[in-house]
């Protein structure tokens, strides 16, 4: 079971969180014309990375904040975690 550092609450076990997918996906702005390809990339197309992956988790049984977690998908090592509004360099 992963041990995730919630930037708001500290180290918490995985069973307090729910997974939210790739954090690098950007939602197209509202009212903007988008091509089918752009929209499909936003809704469906995901890379199945092996290695470092920036992903979303929500601390549903804790502070209910969505956070970003930088995790290695093959070793499960967690490198850094970020608040929702933090930009990840």
């Amino acid at each position: 079971m992963l041990y995730i550092n919630c930037p708001h609450c500290g180290m918490r076990s995985q069973n307090e969180f729910s997974y939210g997918g790739d954090a690098s996906v950007k939602r197209p702005e509202l009212n903007k014309e988008v091509s089918d390809q752009e929209w499909d990339d936003f809704v469906y197309n995901r890379k199945s990375l092996r290695g470092k992956h920036l992903e979303l988790w929500q601390h549903i049984s804790g502070c209910r904040q969505w956070i970003k977690v930088e995790r290695d998908t093959s070793t499960h090592e967690i490198f850094r975690t970020f608040k929702a509004e933090e930009e990840v360099a």
Partner: peptide
């Protein structure tokens, strides 16, 4: 109920802060 709350929180915290 629970999914909708998470859904709203997702958009408020991540997409339209």
């Amino acid at each position: 109920a629970a999914n909708v709350l998470s859904h709203l929180e997702y958009y408020l915290q991540l997409i339209w802060p």
